[in-house]
Design a protein around this nucleic acid. Sequence first.
DNA 1: TCGTCCGCATTGACTGGACAATGCGCTGTG
DNA 2: CACAGCGCATTGTCCAGTCAATGCGGACGA
Lengths: 251, 251
Amino acid sequence: MYQQIRDALRRQIADGTLSAGAQLPTEAALTAQYGVGRATVRQALGELVNEGLVVPMRPRGYFVKERRPMVFRPQAEFRKRPYSAEMDAFVTEHSADGREPRQLIEVAIVEPAPDIAKRLHLEPGELAAVRRRIRWLDGEPFNVNDSYFPLDIVRDSEIMRPEDITRGANEVLAELGYRQVRALDELYVRMPTPDEARRLELGPGTPVAYHVCTGYTADARPVRVAVSVLPGDRHVISYERQWEQPQDRAE
Amino acid sequence: MYQQIRDALRRQIADGTLSAGAQLPTEAALTAQYGVGRATVRQALGELVNEGLVVPMRPRGYFVKERRPMVFRPQAEFRKRPYSAEMDAFVTEHSADGREPRQLIEVAIVEPAPDIAKRLHLEPGELAAVRRRIRWLDGEPFNVNDSYFPLDIVRDSEIMRPEDITRGANEVLAELGYRQVRALDELYVRMPTPDEARRLELGPGTPVAYHVCTGYTADARPVRVAVSVLPGDRHVISYERQWEQPQDRAE
DNA sequence: TCGTCCGCATTGACTGGACAATGCGCTGTG
DNA sequence: CACAGCGCATTGTCCAGTCAATGCGGACGA
């Protein structure tokens, strides 16, 4: 059965017989070794690909996938205080040292998708400004981040210019009189849409985190919806908490 | 080509021609309709399955998958807390009303996996206690949650008993003199291991969030590592943040 | 009326082939 | 020595078929 082949290969990957980056036996070799048809071997390999363990490099063969996640911190933009020693160590361990960043910013005025409009309290037909950002690391697309703002509050502001805002879009919003005091984060885990897979150059077997952050002003008006798509094989999402009170935590 | 068939079906699912729960044409029907071999049709259907859009119900046919996510809040779940109106509304919208919960608890003494041991600052060979929980909703496995504690501090405590601890394991730890004041959360997104897929009854095309929470006492000792596996199709992870309070309220 | 058994439609697993596409490396040429 | 071109190993796509497993529903019998 193909499951035997699949499991044997998976075991070899897990125990290091096949280390990261190593080449697997070719389809022909496996066909001969197990005495089965090629379709059977391909099914075994296909499942490993779908698990994200293996990448086919046509026509060179199959290779064990390497995983080099970067830390993604939803918290980073809010916090000014220093992080704890643990967080520092963790970030250092997964740092981007030596990798070359690049980003592309694009600004547009759109009628947002229904779920975005709902979060911004926009009526159907009302417009929003969107800053679309694609970020790259070492020439590899890393994540996409689209931030939506109600058009009437950011019109003619710095936010509409497709350039990097060093002090952050949140600071600009604050200067415009819409300082955010609260945010609601949602995180969905799913397989990418074909469009996302293309934009992020995702191989099969790579799920994504879909992160939606809605920022509110003190009078409970939503002024920003940030949508991020994070490839699972390139990220670890991390945040820190402190207990204000002795408290339970459960999932 | 199989891509045409796949895309045509995906379009029908997206635009509602095939609604959630509806049956797709059978392999035989598609074979006839497109005049291709069965393998081609199966490849098209297989990719839709891997995207999590479609579920094969052997031998009844292929059906459009339904998605019913529950809110998962790393922030206190039992704690009555003054959540904001937005959070309340969001939780209400994705509530578990009318669903029947069940859970199974198992306690063991183990030599933890290297990554767990490292987070607990345990030397190789040192032991940990682990409380393994599987939680169900409407007979469907919902998530698994394994909490590890250094054995020497929980030995003979209530934590070693495989029963529900109403006031929470964290409170027990606090009573033992190890009150947690800080936690570091990590979230990985990946495809499930075969073991996870079996325990959680995951179909193909269902990614998981792998959530690791390490809790620290005031003197920076890690006393608890909670590992959760959350099926992507049954969860939306959500948390709330506030800007720069004296005590940053976590995410 | 109720229960049991069996047929059948459908997917799962597999065979053994065919031809196309594609990088890599070698070879031969200028 | 540099470069262009070709061969080749390998995966991608596809075909036509076989047999097994499985749940549902209808036919049949008590």
